[in-house]
Amino acid sequence: MHRRHRRIAGITAAATLLLAAGCGGDDETTVTATTSPTVAASTTATADAPAVAPYIDIVSGTVDIDEVAEQTGQDDYTLAFLLADTAGTCTATWGGSKALDDSTVQAEIAKIAALDGDVIVSTGGATGTYLESVCTADELAAAYSSALDAAGSNALDVDIEQTVTAATVTQALRTLQTDRGTAITLTVPVGGTVLGLTDTSIALLQSAADAGLDVTVNAMTMNFTEENDDWGASMTTATEAVVADVKSVWTTLSDAEAYQMLGVTPMIGVNDTGPITETADAQTLLDYAEEKGLGFVRFWSVNRDNGGCTTGEVEATCSGIAQETYEFTKMFADFTN
């Protein structure tokens, strides 16, 4: 596959420096969701991340990574999910059950590396105990860093679908980005075609902006109400609402910069709340993403990218619709920004 990377730069380095200068350049940073702290620009360049990195349940072992690469050319992935352990302590695990150095998970990561693929470590998700809920900011930064090292990565996806303290998360991310220049994506739910992001998600983005973080925003275009029996159009309309939300937080962004800061992630096949992402709907979203110049695309998940079940039910290992194996992966792999 032609390797396409993008600079993760929700706020440019120049803008970060300007913010720091405007606040006096003090290195002491106190992060809250409602006040602008004094921040200093990181001396470490922010890492790159792949433009196309679909999610994969790295714990399940239900995807043949070599086969996917052979059939689609896809070799970059977002690994889901980093969680606290089963005891609910601040111990980073894969899926809440496997240690960072677990041999089966490491074997899967090694396959990606052998393909010259890149990985993004994703934390959080829909279920499980969040590290973000049980760790202090310092502990969280250390947990993130350990997981990135274990995966041979410097790109982090923070998927927040539960209630967390925004300041804890953004303070940890500030430490991580300052210390190692990590590429950071904030993945947040979309509430609807008009609503865009929820108030809770906007508060998280505002906290990130106040902390001077260099981030991108990943809109989860899934699980909201379909309009006019056109799910593809519903996803693009909702994304436009998210663009407006992003510009309400980072007020100096141009339209082009806001689009470049944004990525989209649909749920292929049957969504949890009823909508169905057919291949035509995914193509509508991909065409929109290319036309607008979105920074990246992902989808949930490669594990589901097959027609192994056509019952219309939500399953972890199949899409619930009639489709060819890896049909969505092939479509997304062709995305260019």
Rank of each mutant, 00 (worst) to 15 (best):
V243F: 00
W231H: 01
M222N: 03
G212Q: 07
T277N: 05
A209M: 15
V249S: 04
G263V: 03
G269I: 04
S254Y: 06
S254F: 06
E257D: 15
D245T: 02
T237D: 11
I268M: 03
N218P: 07
L262V: 11
T225R: 12
V242H: 07
T273Q: 13
A233Q: 10
V243P: 00
D229G: 07
A211R: 08
Q260T: 14
D287P: 09
E257N: 12
A233Y: 04
A289M: 09
A244Q: 11
S234K: 05
T237H: 13
N271T: 01
A241Q: 08
I276S: 05
T279L: 15
A244R: 11
M220Y: 05
D281Y: 04
T225S: 13
A233E: 09
Y259G: 14
K247T: 03
V264G: 03
T236L: 06
D210M: 13
K247Y: 09
D230A: 09
D230I: 03
G263H: 09
G232T: 04
A241N: 04
L253G: 10
T216N: 15
Q260R: 15
W231D: 03
A244F: 00
T225C: 12
V242W: 01
M220L: 07
E226S: 09
N271R: 05
Q283Y: 10
V242Q: 05
E227H: 12
D230L: 00
G212R: 05
G269V: 00
E227M: 14
E278V: 15
D245E: 09
L262I: 12
S248Y: 04
S254Q: 10
S254T: 15
P275G: 10
D272K: 04
T277I: 04
L286F: 11
A282H: 09
V217Q: 05
M261W: 00
D230W: 01
E227I: 12
T216E: 13
M222E: 03
D210Q: 13
A280R: 10
A256D: 15
T251H: 02
Q283P: 11
T221C: 04
I268D: 09
D210Y: 15
Y288G: 07
T221R: 01
L253F: 13
E278S: 15
A241G: 03
A280M: 05
W231Q: 08
D214V: 15
T277L: 02
Y259T: 13
Q260D: 14
I268P: 01
S234H: 03
M267F: 15
M267E: 14
D229S: 14
F224A: 08
A219C: 01
